[in-house]
Amino acid sequence: MNIPDNLYYTKEHEWVLIEGNKGKVGITDYAQSHLGDITYVELPEVGKEVKQFDSLASVESVKAASDIYAPLSGKVLEVNKALEASPESVNKAAYAEGWMALLEIKDESEKDKLMDAGKYKEYLNKLESRD
């Protein structure tokens, strides 16, 4: 399972790449593999304000429909429009072409409530041993 070192992670399997006051958001490799073939991504409106862990977007796969939560509070600056035509990018490149939204971060200290790569890896190991 691919878990890049430079990202922060939520318990619901979202990632955020923090660069200055901006945060790029997507779902993890574990999430895309668990969901299976992704067939639709509902992106938020640009300008929408979200609180940390509130619903930000939703994805549908041939198995299920799932909510995607905001890893940090902020305002949506940009969304990945390319996913409307090719949602399978989330399966193919969850940390690259599969990104969903770019947020203007309100409060960077909120990242203390997220996991770094090491902690997320431990968290996944626990989940998988439970399965």
């Binding site: 619901e12 399997h13 979202e14 779902i27 668990h34 299920a64 429909a65 799932s66 909510d67 939560y69």
Partner: peptide, 8 residues
């Protein structure tokens, strides 16, 4: 991510 509906 949280499943709304799932076969699991």
């Amino acid at each position: 991510m949280a499943d709304k509906q799932s076969l699991m």
